[in-house]
Design a protein around this nucleic acid. Structure first.
Length: 239
DNA sequence: TCATTAAATTGTT
DNA sequence: AACAATTTAATGA
């Protein structure tokens, strides 16, 4: 049953292998790690579970240890607009954490996922004390800005093949989602939810991209063969 | 470890 | 939306 993943209640301490999947820890000094690691909590989210809701006050800075989340909002008419998918290694919510303002989006799990959270206080302590952490956050904000600019282009194009390609390029972003690597664990149904197309159309698009040797379709996932190609307009026009 | 079965995912209409 | 084909996961001997 889909409910809210409140890290206040359904939480546990992160396992060592889960800590290893948290990218920003590597940018911290040992003393900083020692201080912050005990504050990190993780929880298991089931499909449909909300990790955060629009309008709620910020509680944690969140990250995906494993799984797949969806960031979206609902318009006044009630139809939801998906901003982006969040695969393994992705951290989000720094904007609301910095400003101490309510969340401006919903984040839900698309499948069983492990979500980590750093309490707001710990987040601010790192901002105040760790140069490495500030570099990480700045780099992340910059990379995400580029991604949202690219997302605006995606919305303007109506070629489904190109839309799927650009969405995949975003999900394979090694800076924002270092946990993904070469193979993105995602079903064609999940990708369809993210892109806003039917599963059939996504299936066709993926086969087109495979023909172009940009990706390889695998059972329950996709292997990227050319991230450059997925990002390249000239390549995509030849599809 | 292997064979069987159930479940999940993909391919197609 | 429905269905068949394929792949993986689970089960039990």
């Amino acid at each position: 049953m889909a409910t809210d993943l409140t890290l206040h209640q359904r939480r546990r301490a992160p396992r060592p292998d889960e800590l290893a999947g948290i990218p920003w820890l590597r940018h911290l000094q040992p003393a900083e790690q020692e201080r912050v690691i005990p504050q990190i909590v993780v929880g298991d989210a089931q499909p449909g579970d909300h990790v955060c809701r629009y309008g709620r006050p910020p509680t944690y800075w969140f990250g995906v240890v494993d799984g797949l989340l969806k960031m979206s909002t609902e318009s006044a008419q009630g139809n939801s607009v998906t901003y982006t998918g969040l695969p393994s290694g992705g951290w989000f919510g720094e904007g609301t954490a910095i400003k101490q303002e309510p969340y401006r989006y919903n984040v839900q799990a698309l499948r069983n996922s492990v979500v980590a959270g750093l309490p707001i206080d710990g987040f601010h302590w790192l901002l105040d004390h760790s140069i490495g952490f500030n570099r990480f956050v700045m780099n992340q904000l910059n990379e995400r800005l580029g991604q949202f600019i690219a997302a605006r282009e995606i919305d303007r194009m109506n070629d489904p093949d190109v839309r799927v390609a650009r969405s995949l390029a975003s999900l394979f972003n090694p800076v924002l989602y270092p946990g993904v690597g070469e193979v993105l664990r995602i079903t064609q149904q999940e990708l369809a939810y993210l892109v806003g197309l039917s599963r059939q159309r996504v299936n066709m698009a993926l086969n087109t991209l495979q023909e172009a040797a940009l990706i390889r379709i695998e059972y329950g996932g996709l292997r990227v063969l050319s991230l450059e190609g997925l990002r390249n307009d000239a390549v995509l026009r030849t599809l």
